[in-house]
Design a protein around this nucleic acid. Structure first.
Lengths: 352, 352
DNA sequence: TGAATCCATGTAACCGATTACATGACACAC
DNA sequence: GTGTGTCATGTAATCGGTTACATGGATTCA
């Protein structure tokens, strides 16, 4: 018992398939009588149009593909949420493909999207992924969101370097000197840009650098935190490559009996929702993640409408100071730091 | 400049489209010479098969659709993560469609999936959504995960009632008497089953009930918490309909100067990752969310392989006691509650 | 040598929609 | 009454693959 096709409907309504199509798509002229007969048949047969077939003949899928490295963590779920909201508003669907650990896997995923999507958003924070993507998807428009700002390709990139510099400058301003960086994984462009910003800002401040490599996960931040707590000379501040690791490190410090921020100040990156919910609240570099996702989707939809777009938009993260780097009596200077969120975590925007 | 089709490849390799197809799909016999010529042409033309067209002729999309009420919150992102991992393992894609607030919207979304997916997972916690879905999608297999356990349809449901009873019994066991429930939104089947469990268990314990309606969001839990803190006779325990609201309430209590768990004990539902990260750690009813998502996906894939499946699997949540309901010196009795997670939040499983 | 067998290949129908173009009915003006 | 224009409708090509079946060349066996 196969589902009804447009031909079944045409037969039953005693009209041609063209008329059925005209009624259903609203394109082209039909008499009221025809329309009624068609709709009756549709109802009787419980006909539902086959989107795949429709896509093939119109070469329009109303679907955007999203290529992610991994679905884990609030960063990506926030991003997807922003995209999803925008997609619904535009009448688009979202097809996600995640857990691509290397560039080859990502490019295979991109290829498998051919004929399935009208456009792609690629988040592959690996060198070369964007290049591999080029040409592979025919003329499918691609918007990249990896760290490698690539001219002449539509992209949205975060100013990782500037954000990292701001983080270090903030820690220096509140009197910290032994500032350690927990970095993201090697080969990840975002991670490397953040580390570079840290190194540069420390040099500018005349301070020595120490880097522990993490993996952007809470667990890796926790491990790093335990190692730091065990040192003879403990750091008085930690700048983590993202909020996930910062939270992991915070828990490790608390387990080890170190006080945050009294003994060690902590700064993250991203401003995931969790950052304002842990105690103490986490100072971080805020990216409006969902909003960025929304923008990305809207741009790629416009590109799917054959609008040319080769802009490289830079998202500048904003320093949000919470309790994790903010003493009642700082080591010196800067007593009037922005203390919003310390008492009232941001609960607004819950439903976007 | 249109992307190459299988006919272009056939022309260039000087073979028929059938041979090209045979080489590319691996089905059917081809000589080594033919295979080489085809692959050369594929390479030269940068040919990538058009999945949409392939789906149309094979009636196989290798895609599963997921219909969600809303993408917000860790519950759904965890669920999607579990599904995504399983989908990748099975060679499937995931197409998500969320923010369906009522049953009509959800059924429209289901219809729009026709011809796009091999199966559907529907999470629409509204009465009747499952029924509306029936027949609408032709013979597309559907697995429902809403609260309304519907016989003769494949489904996965959480034992909300049993979980709620366990929550109340736990609070009673640690000596609490004035136990308030913050419920989920009216019309949400999960919310209503949890409330029913609360009411029943309270009655069984001979205690009076108080219910404040929330909306499953942190903000609504926060509002409810503030109202409770302002009462003349404050509750000594709160059972929230989900972890999101429990966390919101926890923050409200802390702002109001109430101590958790000393003044008021707190229990949530779901065990989202956040539950183990707030301080105090949140006692909750654990559903292995990602794991449930994985199972759902695997079942629907089997159903897409025309395996008959009308089972209704019940997920029984497990009480996880953390510090939010666990005093050093409980009001009386039960001193040796399980204290795992209090010091060491679960960081394992970070990468699944 | 001729018949039977095998197997790589090609031809063309098909999946289920959309749509360019042809058709034919009808109205209107001359 | 004929020519012309309008407009609803139908026919058939098309999108880009897969695949049942036909074909024909080489191999095998008598």
């Amino acid at each position: 018992m196969k589902p009804a096709t447009i031909r079944d409907v045409a037969l039953r309504a005693d009209v041609s398939v063209a008329s059925v199509s005209r009624v259903l798509t609203g394109a082209g002229p039909v008499t009221e009588a025809t329309r009624r007969r068609v709709l009756e048949a549709v109802d009787a047969l419980q006909y539902v149009p086959h989107s795949g077939a429709r896509s093939l003949s119109t070469s329009k899928t109303n679907t955007i593909g999203v290529i992610l490295p991994d679905l884990y963590g609030e960063y990506f779920s926030e991003l997807i949420r922003g995209m999803d909201v925008a997609a619904r508003a535009q009448g688009y669907h979202l097809i996600v493909s995640s857990s691509h650990d290397d560039a080859d896997e990502a490019s295979a995923a991109i290829r498998s999207m051919r004929g399935r999507v009208d456009g792609l958003i690629v988040l592959s924070p690996h060198l070369g992924a964007a290049n591999l993507a080029s040409g592979l998807a025919g003329r499918t428009p691609i918007l990249v969101m990896n760290g490698g700002a690539d001219e002449e390709r539509a992209s949205i990139v975060v100013d990782n370097h500037g954000g990292a510099v701001a983080a270090v400058e903030h820690l220096v301003a509140v009197g910290r000197r032994r500032i350690v960086h927990i970095s993201g994984p090697t080969g990840n462009l975002d991670a490397e840009a953040r580390m570079a910003g840290y190194v540069e800002a420390m040099a500018a401040a005349g301070l020595p650098t120490t880097v522990i490599e993490g993996a952007f996960t809470k667990a890796s931040g926790h491990d790093a935190g335990l190692r730091l707590a065990g040192l003879a000379v403990q750091p008085d501040a930690v700048f983590a490559g993202n909020d996930n690791m910062a939270v992991g490190a915070m828990l490790a410090f608390q387990e080890a009996g170190l006080r945050v921020p009294e003994d060690v100040a902590l700064v993250g990156f991203d401003d995931i929702p969790l950052a304002s919910l842990v105690r103490p609240g986490l100072t971080t570099l805020k990216i409006n993640i969902a909003e960025t996702g929304r923008k990305a989707l809207e741009r790629v939809v416009r590109m799917a409408g054959s609008e040319v777009d080769t802009a490289c938009e830079v998202v500048r993260p904003e320093l949000v100071v919470r309790a994790s780097s903010n003493l009642e009596r700082p080591y010196g200077g800067a007593a009037d730091l922005n203390r919003t969120d310390v008492q009232t975590p941001s609960l607004e925007g819950e439903k976007l």
